[in-house]
C-alpha cells in the first residue's frame, strides 16, 4: 500500500503501466495480490486492456527443475525480442502462514534487463498450485504489455491442475529418476499438458522417462493438438529453443483458453465458501455434533450420511 497504489488509477497511471514503468507495475501487483482497498479500481482500469500476453504455465513435481527451466525459457524469449513477466508461486506453511520465496534465486540471469519482471507469490493456503489472486497478478502483467507471462506453480503432482484454467499453454516438467514409472505425474497433471518436458535430460534415465511419457500419452484419447515430449537440460540451455518453438506452435494451433473465466471464478468462490464452511463445522461445539462424531466412531453412521447431517446441524445452529 504505497502512494502509487492508493491513487485512483487514471489514464496517466495506465499509460505509465503500459509503458513499462516498473514501480507502477510492482505496486499494482501488490494491490491485486493482497486485495487492498485500491485493488478494485485497478482491476476495472486494466480490464479493457487485457488479452495481449500469451500466458504459459509451468508445472510439475518439486525438484524437476521448473525454476531453472523457466529462467532458460525466459532467456530464449529475450533472444526473440519478447518482453516477459514471470509469476512464481511458492508454498506458504499451513501452520504459520509464512513462506520462503526462493524460486527467483534461480532466475538471477535477467537482472538489469528491463524486459523481464519477476514476481514471487506465496500460495497462502490456496490449494491447486497457485494463489487465490494469481490470475489477477497475471492480468496486471498482461495490462503492462508483457508479451509472454510465465507462471510457475508450486511443486505440483497429481491434482494441482488449476494452472490449466489460466494458462494458454501448459508445460508439464518432469525429471528422470523422481520415482518409479513417473508416478509423480500419473494422473490429472498429465491430462492438462500441452507440452511435456523431460528436464535434466543429461541424466542416464532420461530416455526411459521419455518413453514412459510417450506411452502414457498414447493411452489418452485427444482431439487436435498432440502434446510433444521434449528433452531439455535447463542448466546448459539445451533443448530450450525447441521448447519455445513448440509453445509457439501450440499458441498458433490452439490459441485461447479452454476454461471460461466465469467457471474459474465460480470454482474459486466454491473453494472459499467451502473453507468457511469447514471452519464453522470444525468450531461447532454443540452436543449434537459431538454425538454425531461418536456415532461415526462407533460405526453407527457412515461418513457420507454424517457429513449431510453436519451440514443440517450447521444450518440449524445459525437460526
Amino acid at each position: 500500500m504505497t502512494a502509487a497504489a492508493k491513487q485512483v488509477p487514471d489514464s496517466e497511471w495506465l499509460a505509465k503501466l503500459q509503458s513499462g514503468h516498473r514501480t507502477t507495475l510492482a505496486r499494482a501487483i501488490t494491490a491485486v495480490e493482497n486485495e487492498t482497498a485500491g485493488a478494485g479500481d485497478i482491476i476495472s482500469a486494466i480490464h479493457p486492456h487485457l488479452g495481449h500476453a500469451h500466458v504459459v504455465g509451468f508445472t510439475g513435481p518439486p525438484g524437476a527443475g521448473k525454476s531453472t527451466l523457466v529462467s532458460a525459457y525466459v532467456a530464449e524469449l529475450r533472444k526473440r525480442d519478447l518482453t516477459v513477466g514471470v509469476v512464481a508461486v511458492d508454498p506458504s506453511s499451513p501452520l504459520t502462514g509464512g513462506a520462503i520465496l526462493g524460486d527467483r534465486i534461480r532466475m538471477t540471469a535477467h537482472t538489469g534487463d528491463e524486459g523481464v519482471f519477476v514476481r514471487s507469490l506465496a500460495s497462502r493456503g490456496h490449494l491447486g498450485g497457485l494463489s487465490r489472486t494469481a490470475a489477477r497478478v497475471i492480468d496486471v502483467m498482461d495490462a503492462a504489455r508483457r508479451d509472454v507471462v510465465v507462471v510457475e506453480t508450486v511443486g505440483a503432482g497429481q491434482s494441482e491442475v488449476e494452472v490449466a484454467e489460466i494458462a494458454h499453454t501448459k508445460v508439464v516438467v518432469c525429471a528422470p529418476g523422481l520415482g518409479d514409472d513417473i508416478q509423480a505425474i500419473k494422473a490429472g497433471i498429465l491430462e492438462i499438458a500441452d507440452v511435456l518436458v523431460v528436464n535434466k535430460a543429461d541424466l542416464p534415465l532420461a530416455d526411459r522417462t521419455v518413453k514412459q511419457l510417450k506411452g502414457m500419452l498414447g493411452l489418452t484419447k485427444r482431439e487436435g493438438w498432440t502434446p510433444p515430449v521434449l528433452r531439455t537440460t535447463a542448466t546448459t540451455g539445451e533443448g530450450v529453443d525447441t521448447l519455445a518453438d513448440k509453445i509457439d506452435d501450440h499458441a498458433d494451433a490452439e490459441g485461447g483458453l479452454r476454461a471460461s473465466p466465469v467457471h474459474r471464478v465460480q470454482r474459486l468462490l466454491a473453494g472459499i465458501a467451502a473453507e468457511r464452511l469447514k471452519r464453522r463445522i470444525e468450531r461447532q461445539d454443540d452436543p449434537a455434533m459431538t454425538e454425531l462424531c461418536e456415532a461415526v466412531l462407533r460405526g453407527d453412521v457412515g461418513f457420507d450420511a454424517a457429513a449431510s447431517r453436519a451440514l443440517e446441524l450447521l444450518v440449524k445452529s445459525k437460526d
Partner: peptide, 21 residues
C-alpha cells in the same frame, strides 16, 4: 527461517549479491 516461522513472506537470495540486484 525465523521470519518464515513468524508468518512472514521471505524472499531469500543467498550470499554474494550486488547492490543493483
Amino acid at each position: 527461517a525465523y521470519l518464515r516461522d513468524a508468518g512472514m513472506e521471505v524472499v531469500y537470495t543467498g550470499p554474494w549479491q550486488e547492490i543493483p540486484f
